[in-house]
Computed example of a mutant assay.
Amino acid sequence: MADIADGAAKPGLSTPIDWPTKPYLGVKAMMVPLSASMRVDNLNDNLLLALRRDDATGDMQPVSIPKGAYLRLSDFVNEYDFADYQYPPTDKFRDFHKFGRTIEGYPELAR
């Protein structure tokens, strides 16, 4: 609340900001790729819970989104999904891939 009160006193919420030289005055924001999300809330220390609109059907769907990555692996086609993909020994994304696929309901795709 203190950050919001402090930010409200600065340009950006009620007065124009100096774009493009100082675009982030006021309350600090973090850009995240959560397209079609209608509502977002904390689920726990690791996940956000979002209510988003399905692009193909227009239906609303609840989804979990990992904090830090702010994306769902199942929303993208990536090299991890190819049947012949082999993780390099030092691949730093392997654990995230297993976590992401499991929380999205596709544990069989996390190799």
Score class of each variant (00 low, 15 high):
I4D: 09
A36G: 00
T102N: 15
I103W: 00
T15K: 13
E104N: 04
D18H: 08
K22N: 15
N46L: 09
I4M: 13
A5G: 09
S14P: 02
G68D: 02
D75N: 13
L51H: 01
R53M: 07
D6N: 13
R101I: 01
R111N: 15
D45N: 14
S35P: 03
Y85K: 08
L51V: 07
G68Y: 00
P11K: 12
Y80E: 00
F93Y: 11
G105D: 04
S64W: 01
D41A: 14
D55R: 11
I65D: 05
A2C: 07
N42C: 09
R39N: 08
V40E: 05
M60Q: 08
E108N: 08
G105Q: 03
G105E: 01
V32F: 02
D59H: 04
M38G: 07
T15P: 03
P107W: 02
T21M: 11
D59M: 06
L49V: 12
I65T: 01
P107V: 06
I17W: 10
G7C: 09
R94A: 14
L71S: 01
R39V: 12
N46K: 15
T15H: 09
R94M: 13
A8R: 10
T102W: 06
P23M: 02
D81A: 13
A110M: 05
P62G: 05
R53D: 07
F96M: 10
A9Y: 11
G68W: 05
A69Q: 12
P33N: 11
A29C: 11
P62M: 14
L34W: 05
H97L: 01
A69D: 01
T90G: 06
G68C: 03
N78S: 12
G58F: 02
Y106F: 15
L47N: 02
D18E: 11
A2T: 12
L25C: 09
S37L: 06
T57W: 03
S35T: 07
K98T: 00
S74L: 10
S74Q: 09
A36T: 13
K67I: 01
D45A: 15
D75K: 06
V27S: 09
Q86C: 07
E108A: 13
Y70V: 04
G105H: 02
L43Q: 12
G26H: 04
E108L: 03
L47M: 02
P23Y: 04
F76W: 04
N42G: 01
F99G: 06
K28M: 07
D59E: 14
I17K: 13
S35D: 15
D91Y: 00
D95A: 14
R52H: 02
A83R: 03
V27I: 15
S37H: 11
A69L: 05
I4L: 15
P66N: 01
F82D: 09
L25S: 15
P62V: 11
D84Q: 05
I103Q: 04
S37T: 15
T21D: 14
